[in-house]
């Protein structure tokens, strides 16, 4: 009558079928199940509710829940696909998927563009890049005079902003990362390839009969 749910489904309201998630991503079923072990660990670090809050996300990233960071906030907001202020397991796997070594370059380029288009206008504006640079400098204790920041912005936009309208659109970004492929390094997490060996306990908690699928 729908009154009985498995323990995993009850404790993790967003836990989606690993087979279905694997079919939507570059992950194997085993990798999805190993990711669930990671998800359980992060989502129980402050409140054990089967969801990752911003505080838990920051704790996992920085090992320090107090640290406010423009970029981790932005990543969290992009992972929080449904805009609920928390990340459920389905969001977690589908969002991390773009960082999988087997994910397409096109997806990585699109995600990185969206990441840097902080205000969602469809353009990466010079003022936005300046704001990100200042945040980076604050975070790293690196000191740069405003004049030096402007010089870096001039040089970057000279190369990236082909039509000289003061902002970078998607096609300009595509061209720019093509010339500077190292900018996409942050978009690939080799850990995702080794996730089953990092979290071997997934085998004991598997809900799938044939985990080799």
């Amino acid at each position: 009558m729908g009154c009985f749910q498995s323990v995993a489904t009850k404790q993790f309201p967003g836990r989606e079928d690993p087979v279905a998630l694997a079919s939507q991503t570059a992950c194997s079923v085993s990798e999805v199940e190993a990711l669930f072990e990671l998800f359980k660990s992060i989502s129980s670090s402050v409140i054990d509710d089967g969801l990752i809050s911003k505080e838990e996300f920051q704790l996992a990233l920085f090992k320090n829940r107090k640290k406010e960071n423009l970029f981790s906030n932005r990543i969290f907001d992009l992972f929080d696909v449904k805009g609920k202020g928390v990340i459920d397991f389905g969001d977690f796997v589908r969002s991390l998927n773009v960082f999988h070594p087997n994910a397409s370059q096109e997806d990585k380029i699109n995600f990185s563009f969206t990441l840097y288009d902080m205000d969602g206008t469809g353009y990466i504006e010079r003022q936005e890049v300046k704001q990100m640079l200042i945040a980076l400098l604050c975070e790293s204790d690196m000191k740069l005079a405003d004049e030096a920041i402007e010089t870096i912005l001039d040089k970057t936009f000279l190369e990236a902003d082909i039509n000289r309208d003061g902002k970078i659109d998607r096609s300009e970004w595509l061209n720019f990362v093509g010339k500077n492929p190292s900018l996409l390094k942050i978009m690939t997490l080799p850990y995702l390839r080794d996730i089953t060996t990092t979290f071997p306990s997934f085998v004991f908690n598997s809900e799938v009969d044939d985990i080799a699928t």
Binding site: F71, R74, A135, I152
Partner: peptide, 26 residues
């Protein structure tokens, strides 16, 4: 001191907040 990269995004990509590898460190 190391030279400062002249590409703004190269600098930004060094942010710890963009380094998701640390999610996997136990």
């Amino acid at each position: 001191a190391a030279p400062v990269p002249m590409n703004a995004f190269e600098l930004i990509s060094k942010s710890q907040g963009l380094n998701l590898s640390s999610l996997f460190e136990k």
